[in-house]
Design a protein around this nucleic acid. Structure first.
Length: 719
DNA sequence: ATATAGAATCTTTTT
DNA sequence: GATTCTATAT
């Protein structure tokens, strides 16, 4: 292939990294510096010049989206499908390994992948079964504990309780959970990695096979790797493997879930002769935005060091708005968004970023008020929806009747008279005989050890599952799904749910059949055995939970947390709620390293902006029902004033029409509304009492301070 | 089995 | 303040 096509689109630094001769390469790629491009072109370069076949390449990312994009861009650049290459997420690749070597990994052939909700439910059930007090041993905490240990590569056997009763309990729960997973063939996310790591350790010839196969390993977002992921990579990389790691220590924002930036420092030590490259030219943001971001992140210690720059101009200054309260802040932001749209910009070019999800509500209310379509990221995803998980649980139970989690989920959904008491008896019976709940149910029916009503109901359930099982045996996946959602009674069950919610649930179940259809087609192409399609589909549902549900509008304002904004870019970005306690969050303010992570988060947020960045904070904020006075975030003072432009009260466009509408209703004014008084000047509505002409309004004037005024006489102008 | 009231909780999230 | 779970009553 023509090498110039690979190298010409690159700048100097990018080209050096792509063509690096060193076996091991570390690329420190700043925000917007062409990180993905370098990865993609490196792969194309290796294939073209090093005489490597796609078979010898493994590229690993964190999200399915990133993996998909990378694969697509490689194929686009090379103009040919890249069969044989392994491109995927850590979990996806680990899963692939375990499917191929389930026996050596000591798993059941049809092992299932638990998503975090499945895991949570399993742990909660086990804690109950163990007779532990749920108040003292919250399932959430245990789940967190177990995952953190697995991410560190630790099994219960490797853990010491040091006579700490709390620790001892946690370890016991962990051990119990492991036994359960092993028995029913369940594998959670962390287990995928830990288990495949173990698979290699215990089967040296298998490890050698993969080490010899993969001549080059490429890692995206290296700063986000945790202990087990790095160990996994290190094990897989043999003596002759070339490692190519791309990352940005300044964008490490997942320390709280086990990511270790240290790995980036460790890399050059572990791989001697590592050549390090820095990508500092930014193709996204204006000079002012970059300089401000550089100055902010400079307050962090222990950085690898990197300074973003651009060839383009300085652009506009960063706007800073000190809002009176969160209502005022929202009003200001929405006014600016409206300006943008009125000037012909797209709604989707605007992103409203915040530290925590609770902040979205006020913004949403304003957007609804103005009839501006928007989309909030972060809701439930398709395969996480209740009705979908119910349907999947039926499929799982027919597939594997040892699956207690699924059994318990659907034994009384739709309600068929199997109450919590009956479930408890089944659970106890299962526990006492060391069998599954399914077997226990059988036992109870056979020996008539239940009250007749419960017995009949249980018998009905068991029979129904058996019927479904035999009916779907020779069907294609989508036919299986269709059969299951009807015969299980789920359709009828959700038909009864009134309103919008019930309707979307039915639509989703319909959509599940569609998903099955697509899966069938893919399976046909890849010649997957019919009996394995269901298992593959169930794993797919766990590993790739699907798109987050958003509004149906194509062009809408984007609302999301700073964390979910990573990797994205927008022409106009609003960073909202920059107050001490909010951002940096109070739970992350005491600890120096946590604070630095917050600062990196701020850095990530700022560098999302292409043209305009607007930062705002509220002096007073109502949160969780309580009003709190706040100070501006320290991050604001860490940005040199030369890059900032303070926006004064009332400089935004008047919104007379909307206020008239509000005035018609019982409230005389809206809280947080800007008003103008002939004598006192401009202010913000703080409070009001009464209605109509007799209403009194409290206004905080910019110059004159806070005053109570009677609407009838005050003659306030809304602006 | 459902309905309602009171309590508890409220950072960030992918796989 | 809003949601979501839990306990209690019917």
């Amino acid at each position: 292939m023509d090498v110039s096509k690979i190298l010409d689109p690159l700048n100097n630094a990018q080209r050096q990294a792509v063509c690096a001769e060193a076996a091991n390469v570390l690329v420190l790629a700043g925000a917007g510096s062409g990180k993905t491009r370098v990865l993609v072109h490196r792969i194309a370069w290796l294939l073209a010049s090093e005489n490597v076949s796609p078979y010898g390449i493994l590229a690993v990312t964190f999200t399915n989206k990133a993996a998909g994009q990378m694969r697509a861009r490689i194929e686009q650049l090379r103009g040919t499908p890249s069969g044989g290459m392994w491109v995927g997420t850590f979990h996806g690749l680990a899963h692939r390994l375990l499917r191929a070597h389930w026996k050596e990994a000591d798993l059941l052939q049809h092992f299932q992948v638990l998503d975090s909700e499945d895991q949570f439910r399993a742990i909660r059930r086990l804690i109950k079964e163990m007779g532990l007090d749920e108040g003292q041993w919250p399932a959430k905490e245990s789940q967190w504990y177990i995952n953190a240990r697995k991410d560190e590569g630790l099994r219960p056997d490797n853990l010491e309780h040091h006579n700490d009763p709390h620790k001892r309990g946690m370890i016991e729960i962990y051990a119990e959970y492991e036994r359960y997973c092993q028995r029913v063939g369940a594998v959670d996310f962390a287990e995928l990695l830990l288990r495949s790591h173990q698979l290699w350790l215990r089967n040296p010839e298998l490890l050698t096979h993969y080490q010899q196969r993969f001549k080059f390993i490429l890692v995206d977002e290296f700063q986000d790797t945790n202990t087990i992921q790095y160990a996994w990579l290190k094990l897989l990389a043999g003596d002759n493997t070339g490692m190519f790691a791309v990352g940005d220590d300044d964008q490490s924002i997942y320390g709280w879930r086990g990511a270790r930036v240290e790995n980036i420092h460790q890399f050059s030590k572990d791989y001697t002769g590592t050549e390090t490259f820095r990508l500092e030219q930014n193709y996204r943001s204006t000079g002012n935005i970059l300089n401000a971001a550089n100055a902010l992140i400079d307050h962090n210690s222990e950085r690898m060091g990197k300074e973003l720059w651009t060839d383009d101009g300085d652009g506009e200054l960063i706007q800073l708005y000190a809002a009176f309260n969160e209502q005022d802040e929202a009003q200001f932001i929405i006014d600016k968004v409206k300006d943008w749209i009125d000037k012909g910009g797209l709604r989707s070019e605007n992103a409203l970023l915040y530290r925590s999800n609770a902040q979205s509500r006020v913004l949403e209310e304003r957007l609804i008020n103005y009839g501006i379509p928007y989309r909030v990221y972060g809701g439930l995803r398709f395969f996480e929806r209740q009705e979908i998980k119910d349907a999947l649980a039926y499929l799982r139970l027919t597939n594997n009747r040892e699956d207690d989690a699924s059994f318990e989920r659907i034994v009384n959904v739709p309600t068929r008279g199997i109450g919590s008491r009956t479930v408890e008896i089944i659970r106890d019976t299962a526990r006492n005989s060391g069998s599954s709940m399914w077997q226990a149910a059988y036992h109870l029916i056979e020996h008539k050890e239940l009250a007749s009503r419960a017995l009949n109901a249980l018998q009905f359930f068991v029979k129904r599952i058996e019927e479904i099982k035999s009916a779907i045996e020779n069907l294609t996946l989508h036919e299986q799904i269709e059969h299951v959602i009807h015969e299980s009674g789920l359709i009828d069950h959700y038909k009864k749910e009134k309103g919008e919610r019930g309707r979307t649930r039915l639509e989703n179940l319909d959509e599940l059949i569609n998903a099955g259809k697509n899966f069938d087609e893919d399976a046909l192409e890849e010649e997957i055995e019919t009996s394995d399609v269901l298992t593959a589909f169930l794993s797919h549902a766990s590993l790739e939970a699907g798109e987050r549900q958003g509004d149906e509008w194509d062009d809408c304002v984007q609302l999301m947390t700073l964390h979910s904004a990573k990797g994205l870019e927008f022409k106009q970005v609003f960073l909202c709620g920059l107050e001490e306690g909010m951002f940096p969050h109070r739970l992350s303010s005491e600890d120096a390293s946590k604070l630095e992570e917050e600062r990196r988060l701020c850095y990530v947020g700022m560098t999302r902006a292409m043209q305009k960045l607007v930062i705002s904070y509220a002096e007073k904020r109502r949160l969780y029902g309580e009003e709190k006075i706040a100070r501006a975030s320290r991050f604001i003072s860490e940005i040199p004033t030369e890059f900032l432009e303070e926006i004064r009260l009332g400089s935004s466009v008047a919104t007379l029409s909307t206020m008239a509408a509000v005035e018609d209703k019982e409230a005389p004014v809206k809280l947080g509304q800007r008003v103008m008084h002939a004598k006192f000047g401009e202010g913000i509505v703080l409070n009001y009492e009464g209605q109509g002409r007799h209403a009194r309004v409290q206004v905080n004037f910019e110059m004159a301070g806070s005053k109570w005024l009677v609407m009838e006489y005050a003659n306030l102008q809304f602006c």
